[in-house]
Each structure stands twice: as structure tokens, then as C-alpha cells.
Amino acid sequence: MKTGDSLPELQLAGISRTTLALYAGASGDHNPMHIDLDVARSGGMDDVFAHGMLSMAYLGRLLTNYVPQERLCSYGVRFAAITPLHAKPTCTGTVTKVEDGLAHLDLTVTLADGTVTLRGDAVVAA
């Protein structure tokens, strides 16, 4: 692992209503903005949209595809935009620095139109 290395991209299938319902059940996050069209429209949205934490979970999968979970020292994100229904997120990561046995990574979730929905960072044991 060295500065400039890219993690193998994680390309995801389109976010479906089924994906959102399954995530709501698994996570316990039943916020109706993510699963009820009428509630989403009453909030000014065209349709339901993905849970931010679902995108964070996808980035977590990107990380643990790259290194075993026990090597993960820290992980954090900033939510930048919503992920609409049917969007196909792509998770990417780059090693920005390696020192003292630790690799620092920049992480991103991007949609096909270039919208960045999540930015994150992680530190892993190198």
C-alpha cells in the first residue's frame, strides 16, 4: 500500500424501492421519506431517496473489500447530496498518505451524472 494507490471501485446496482425497504428493515431506520412516496412528496421531493447511512455502508464495504475489518482504525463521512431512487452509486478510494504503519484514505460515493453524495476518510493499518 502506497500513496496514490486506488482502491478497486465498487459499482452498485440501481437503488430500488426493495433496496430501501430491506435497508429500513435491517437498520431499523423507517424514516418514511425513504419508503413512502406520499410522505416524500409532502416534503417537496419527487420521490423517495436512499438513506445516507446506506451509502456509508457501501463505502464500508469498499473498505473491507480492500483490508480486513480488524485493520480499520477510523472511518468518517460527510453527507453531500441525496441518492435518488434508481441511481447507481460508485464508491472509490485513494490512499493519500502512508506513515507510521497507517494508511490514510480519501473516499467518495459518486452517481453516474457526477454528483458526489458522500465524502469520507479512513485510516487503516497498512
Rank of each mutant, 00 (worst) to 15 (best):
D106A: 15
G14R: 11
L10D: 08
P68Y: 01
L22P: 00
D106K: 14
Y23R: 09
A57K: 05
D100G: 15
Q69G: 09
T18S: 14
G60L: 03
T83A: 08
R17V: 14
N65M: 03
T83F: 02
V77W: 04
R78L: 03
M53R: 01
P89Q: 05
G120Q: 08
G93P: 04
A57D: 03
V67F: 13
V39T: 12
S42A: 15
F49G: 06
L7N: 09
G93A: 10
P8M: 08
M56R: 00
S6H: 14
H51R: 09
S55P: 00
H86A: 14
T110H: 04
L12R: 12
L102N: 10
I15H: 03
N65T: 13
T96N: 11
C73G: 12
A103V: 05
L20E: 08
A112V: 12
R17S: 13
L72I: 14
D121C: 10
T94G: 03
G114H: 09
I15Q: 08
R17F: 02
G4S: 10
A125E: 14
I82Y: 08
L37H: 08
L62F: 01
T3Y: 00
G25D: 12
T108F: 01
D46Y: 00
E99C: 10
K2G: 08
L59A: 09
V77R: 06
A125Q: 13
K97T: 12
L10E: 06
A40W: 03
H30P: 00
A122Y: 05
S55F: 00
P84N: 08
A24I: 06
P68D: 10
P8Y: 04
A50W: 00
L12H: 09
D46P: 09
Y23Q: 06
D29T: 06
T108P: 03
L111S: 12
V124D: 04
L102H: 09
A103M: 07
H30D: 11
V39P: 00
T19P: 01
G60M: 04
S6L: 15
F49T: 02
